[in-house]
């Protein structure tokens, strides 16, 4: 009896997680796959086996442009967050000497990420707006005559806000990986006569790659899923895949939105699978 209970323990312990994710993740996604083949009109959805939800969306030039635009955001935000994330993590891990200072500085970086995304997005309005801090500063200093119009409600604002929102997702995994780099490797490189930049380039960067990979998964999936930042910061002038879905959802075109969801899901999962080939997450935790 006791050994039976003992053998059953991990199954009992894993059950709540499996049930919750099964019911609120696996089942809904499977249902979306089914619904994406249904017919619909303004009154409701009709079960069927139609493929026009896919052919409509994939046959439209607008869809392709929207996907390209979303990928463009993902690439730009990835490049910026990877650069910032690497150097911030490097500074914290290798240049801050006391462990207490390290924790305090890391917490300073973390706290804003635990506050509302929408509030942090809105907070750029008084900074970047036509009469915002940046523009009035530039005009008063005589650098420009007219306020710069493209600071807010533009692609620039979208990318800036996304970097602001998502950089921590890059800093944390890279910092975590760097903290586990054996310090004697750095010492050995120094003893062998390597300059600081050579140590960063040839020792730390290659060893930090798993952290960068995990950060990349976070940042890329967050940007690919984003609709609120694009909507608020572009002032409705730019589109993303999720925003396109959001509009279809508000028009109750669920099968069309479901087809888009499946296409987006496949794209995201392929990207993640590609990154996972480089890194084993379970080893990195």
């Amino acid at each position: 009896m006791n050994t039976l209970l003992n053998r059953a323990t991990p199954y009992l312990q894993a059950t709540p997680l499996a049930v919750i994710l099964g019911f609120f993740l696996a089942v809904p996604i499977l249902l979306l796959l089914i619904v994406s083949f249904w017919d619909y009109d303004f009154a409701g959805m009709y079960p069927g086996w139609e493929t026009f939800n896919y052919t409509d969306t994939l046959g439209s030039w607008v869809t392709w442009k929207t996907y390209l635009n979303t990928l463009k955001y993902a690439a730009m935000v990835w490049a910026l967050t990877a650069f910032i994330g690497f150097w911030v993590a490097y500074f914290l891990a290798f240049h801050v000497r006391s462990a207490t200072t390290q924790i305090v500085l890391f917490l300073i970086c973390t706290v804003p990420f635990l506050t509302s995304n929408i509030i942090r997005m809105i907070s750029w309005i008084p900074v970047l707006g036509r009469n915002g801090l940046v523009n009035s500063g530039l005009v008063n200093a005589g650098i420009v005559e007219q306020p710069i119009e493209w600071l807010l409600y533009s692609d620039f604002a979208v990318v800036l806000a996304m970097v602001h929102l998502y950089t921590l997702f890059m800093v944390t995994p890279i910092f975590n990986t760097m903290m586990r780099i054996d310090r004697s490797l750095v010492e050995a490189a120094r003893d062998a006569g390597a300059a600081d930049w050579q140590i960063v380039w040839n020792v730390i960067l290659p060893l930090a790659k798993p952290g960068i990979a995990i950060g990349t998964i976070f940042v890329v999936t967050l940007v690919m899923a984003d609709f609120s930042t694009v909507q608020v910061m572009s002032g409705g002038q730019s589109a993303s895949v999720a925003l396109m879905m959001r509009n279809q959802m508000s028009l109750l075109q669920y099968p069309a939105a479901a087809a888009n969801a499946i296409v987006l899901l496949v794209l995201v999962l392929v990207m993640v699978a590609g990154i996972l080939r480089i890194v084993d997450i379970r080893k990195e935790l």
Partner: peptide, 13 residues
Amino acid sequence: VIPSIIVSLGIGV
């Protein structure tokens, strides 16, 4: 990694 809006739509449907 699955986009939030897809989860939202799926559960809604």
